[in-house]
Design a protein around this nucleic acid. Structure first.
Lengths: 391, 391
DNA sequence: GCACTTAAGCAACAGCGTTGCTTAAGTAGT
DNA sequence: ACTACTTAAGCAACGCTGTTGCTTAAGTGC
């Protein structure tokens, strides 16, 4: 019988149900894979043979793919490696400046807009005050002005699209906002399509925490692996990257970390429930009890680690950035305490999950928003089952 | 029997990076997709044109694929639909009896072994007492006897492999057990490879909760979607199906639901921490306070729903099965309370997540273990990039 | 300077889904 | 009955994919 194995191709996201694959899809998959490896290699570059080894494709296939990428200007040769006894390998690198993407971070009181290259590095950054609650027209005006400024950069490469990150809740698939706290008139606003129409560019909408997590995922070495990004600002939310890809949940509702209940019958939260992490954290911060806030956050992080087996916890958001030491310390203490309870011998033992501040500081979300546009180019690094070579 | 070797069940994780796809992979993907749709259609069957519409492939491609499946005996024609103005459609159905798979549930005191067909229906079931803590040789002897009995079925179809479900922790990728509570000698035991060698069949090892969740995922209508399976027996664990595929985490550690902390400074748990759901639940059950136990479980379920945006919660395990009404009621009350706090107007509104007992009763895990073998055949229903792309 | 090793490309090839057309098998109108 | 139309499905040719076999390029080591 023929081999009946499943092979997954990376998702473009939002597609309902499973979809068959044809030759263009195959080609796109492999191209994205190679581009992703080129990107991950960064300045150091990769040789064709290394690409072949990592993708499982034949060297000849890699040669064909990289030749296409070079003619499109996305990749270039960049010197040679030292010989290892034979012809020295030619190093290939991504050409970061071949394309750009825009990232918008619409926060409650500020807009951050970035123009990034294919490596995800910002080549232009703009800030502007914003009154998100002031209504659509005013906000759209500000957005349009800042984006126009970024697009006006003289003779830059093609811009692939605009990634837009907002506070939730919203629907990533439909590109529609839901009832933003304190700004009811946005409920149901099709922000993605409106912006796409105004700029004549593809647009992607996602929650700020999701965008940040996606951007941070790019920075991590392993394409696979799981981590959580915890964002403590005016509220508390999380972005989850599971097995190397952003998990949004069926309704873009995943990552509502703030209203995890960690204290039965605890203090009342603004959401109506009792004992939510967010309520505990914000109350502690308000009364100047940073260790208490950090501890509440740490317990939530420990729960997250326990439930999802994640490798790493990254912290961000204004409140965290205002007091980085306290929060890092509190969370890592909570995770260390948790790790101590999981036996310390045998192959099942694991050390405490590492905690760190999310790199990028105040620009984490905007950079991540641009990544919403870039990520599909690079295949999302999802593990794919190896081929079942015919009989 | 062709290509069904242990190579067909590669460790899905652990692979370094992503893998390229070639023509056999493409073919395997589409074949699995079609097989999955045939399975989902069940007795009713599907026409070729419907398959084409759902996969996005051309009718001609579907004809070729289904022709291959028919010659392999995996699919068959089964009558015709009523005409809708033209030639009536030919109905295709999966031939469930074409292959079988075995599922083993090794619990602490009992072994359940099933032989299932391609539809996942049990065609033979065996039970045997087991002393998991009594050591490897004794357990393996019992397993071998029961499996031999199942394999001896006269002239059955080829058996694709053996799925093995155990209490955690363990490593699905390596097929190795970790320190099972109360049975330290199992720590590091390569159960998967030992069983594969003894039976001469591919074997897959996973946690009982994961196996159960995988099996339950098969039963659900939508191939995509997320749900959680909560298992309350001697311990408390969870199996997570996210976006239609089982989430195990990097170290098969996901789903450690029992030690989610929901009460800061709560009662001490056997794990060393305080306020774990498991501790609260078990203590409540021990003192006959079923509503209290159900409430603790409900709060945990609500946290799960909030964090992962899941569609559905399924309950199982002995303790739940002993008092189904109490737990169903308690958990659904907790979820309803949570839903009330999320505004009730606008497109973002969602009704309370549905709660139900996991179908299958005491055989949920064993059936799911068999599904560990079957699932790769059917493609896992993962969303896949749409065709075309181009530049 | 010869043998060897490693890198990469050229050309022919097998196999995938697609396209264009044909055949099969019904319904609906006259 | 007969034609026209609709829908389902197969046959044959095709374009394009990654693969295979071989050749060329460019180093190292004795």
């Amino acid at each position: 019988m023929g081999c009946v194995t499943s092979n997954d191709f990376p998702s473009l996201g939002g597609v309902a149900g499973s979809v068959g694959a044809n030759l263009p899809a195959l080609r796109g998959h492999n191209t994205a894979l190679v581009l992703g490896l080129l990107r991950a290699a960064g300045e150091a570059g990769v040789s064709r043979l290394e690409l072949a080894a990592r993708t499982g494709l034949t060297p000849q296939a890699v040669s064909k793919i990289t030749a296409r990428l070079r003619t499109e200007g996305l990749a270039a040769e960049a010197g040679r490696r030292a010989s290892t006894g034979g012809k020295p390998a030619t190093v290939l690198r991504l050409v970061p400046g071949a394309r750009h993407a825009l990232g918008l971070h619409l926060d409650r009181d500020e807009l951050t807009a970035v123009r990034v290259d294919l490596a995800g590095r910002a080549v232009a950054v703009r800030h502007a005050p914003l009154a998100f609650a002031a209504g659509a027209e005013q906000v759209l005006g500000t957005v349009e002005r800042e984006v126009a400024a970024l697009l006006a950069e003289d003779a830059g490469p093609p811009v692939l699209g605009v990634g837009v990150a907002c506070p939730g809740p919203l629907d990533h698939t439909a590109g529609v906002l839901h009832r933003v706290t304190g700004a009811p008139e946005w409920d149901g606003f099709p922000l993605r399509d409106v912006l796409a129409a105004r700029f004549g560019l593809p647009a992607v909408l996602d929650k700020d925490t999701n965008a940040a997590a996606l951007g941070l995922a790019q920075g991590m070495s392993a394409g696979t692996g799981s981590f959580g990004y915890l964002h403590l600002g005016t509220g508390l939310g999380a972005g989850l990257v599971l097995d190397g890809s952003l998990y949004r949940g069926p309704r873009t509702g995943a990552g509502e970390f703030g209203h995890q209940i960690v204290q039965l019958d605890g203090p009342r939260c603004s959401c109506g429930q009792q004992g939510c992490i967010e309520a505990l954290c914000l109350a502690a911060v308000a009364r100047g009890d940073l260790p208490g806030a950090a501890r509440a956050l740490g317990v939530g992080a420990a729960n997250l680690v326990e439930l999802l087996d994640i490798d790493r916890v990254l912290l961000g958001g204004r409140t965290v950035l205002d007091h980085p030491e306290e929060f890092l310390g509190g969370v890592s203490r909570a995770l260390a305490a948790q790790a101590r309870t999981r036996g310390s011998a045998g192959p099942g033992a694991r050390t405490a999950v590492s905690v760190a501040l999310a790199p990028g500081g105040a620009r984490t979300v905007a950079d991540g928003a641009a990544e919403l546009v870039l990520a599909p180019l690079f295949g999302g690094h999802r593990p794919v089952r190896q081929t079942g070579q015919g009989d």
